[in-house]
Design a binder for these strands. Structure first.
Lengths: 211, 211
DNA sequence: GGCTATACATAAAT
DNA sequence: ATTTATGTATAGCC
């Protein structure tokens, strides 16, 4: 904000005549304050970007910078009309989300065939887009993944089978959380007859699998 | 960077004597430059946070600020030892990722039972964590969602069945992309005999479902 | 959580 | 893309 002169040779000097912005922290000589200089803060200090060891300090930094990050994201989102989602896991595994994560993750997973730029740290590479594994059309499921798909389905089927059996014994159910994120776009209205049919199918499946 | 004096009454004035940081843009009187003032830039101008209409301008801003956002994220990640993932969709639907999105989304979806803070715009609310729909243990699948689960499985089974049938006719397969994101943590090494067994199960399933 | 002074991000112009 | 000048985020303290 300061306006001084056009040839500001003092720009890069502290009041102590030290060079600004050194890459090594300067020992602070308590700064012999003249009466017109009641400094109460050293201002923002330059820090190295490396993990902060002191936990309390690290937490403060995480808190402040996460806020800053989300603010920037909000601005970018508005200015550029972009959809942004952020997920952060603090070192203590607290989760913070920004934006409509569920919607965006879903969009990301079901990924229309657009090119995808991946930025990881400092690298930026191009990557082929892909759809959610459970809705890849048949042409797109590579043979190499089939076994995993089948395994996934197998476990899902198993859990469903168990759950359905359990359901028949216990009519008390928990609270419904938010709609499962990766189900977005699926039509939830399967009538009970259909459910029964599928249930039967599952039952036979389990037999078929083991027999 | 400027160091002037402790009582900087000129701090809030431009060289023209105008108030700094007004919320409305000041008409620029071409700035009668004295010879000691060869200004070539008005410096960063304050902008309102609202969608930029001019496309070229919007794109530049998106590009610059996305870079800035990712840089901040990288710093936060290192400083606080946090795991961060960002997905952005530009207005033209170009996707940019930051961090190990797949891993983090997976972690988010399978979500260990920790409390979850959600920040959307300016609101922050608490939300109960949940696991991935395909690995919720039986106790956690609410009855209300079962039909959707079954529907999901049904379609998955159908696609797999088709694919397996197709596989038997066509031995050419595509490139394997990255491991399907929401399969992370699953053991991909299902031996071929197991696959065959499951395949058989699926085949019977399809019969069971329709008969 | 709030305050300062300063490091850093970035709007405009080139 | 690079430069400039200034808006903004934030490190260290309370």
């Amino acid at each position: 904000m300061e306006e001084v002169s056009e040839t500001s040779s003092i720009t890069f000097l502290t009041p102590n005549g030290q060079l600004q912005n050194p890459n090594v922290p300067v020992s602070q000589p308590k700064m012999e304050l003249t009466k017109q200089s009641p400094r109460t803060s050293r201002g923002r200090q330059k820090i190295e970007i490396k993990e902060i060891k002191v936990e309390s300090k690290r937490q403060v930094t995480f808190s402040k910078r996460r806020r800053g990050l989300f603010k920037k994201a909000a601005e970018l989102s508005v200015l550029a009309g972009a959809k942004i989602a952020i997920i952060t896991f603090s070192k203590t595994d607290r989760i913070f989300k920004f934006g409509h994560v569920d919607t965006l993750i879903d969009k990301y997973l079901r990924n229309s065939p657009v090119s995808l730029e991946v930025h990881s740290g400092d690298d930026v590479v191009e990557e082929e887009a892909r759809m959610s594994w459970w809705e890849q059309s048949v042409e797109n499921v590579p043979e190499e993944e089939l076994e995993a798909y089948v395994a996934a389905m197998s476990l899902l089927r198993e859990n469903l089978g168990k759950r359905i059996i359990e359901m028949r014994n216990d009519r008390t159910v928990g609270v419904v959380p938010e709609w499962p994120i990766n189900m977005v776009g699926w039509n939830p209205t399967v009538d009970m007859q259909h459910l029964e049919n599928l249930t039967d199918g599952i039952a036979r499946c389990r037999v078929g699998q083991n027999g």
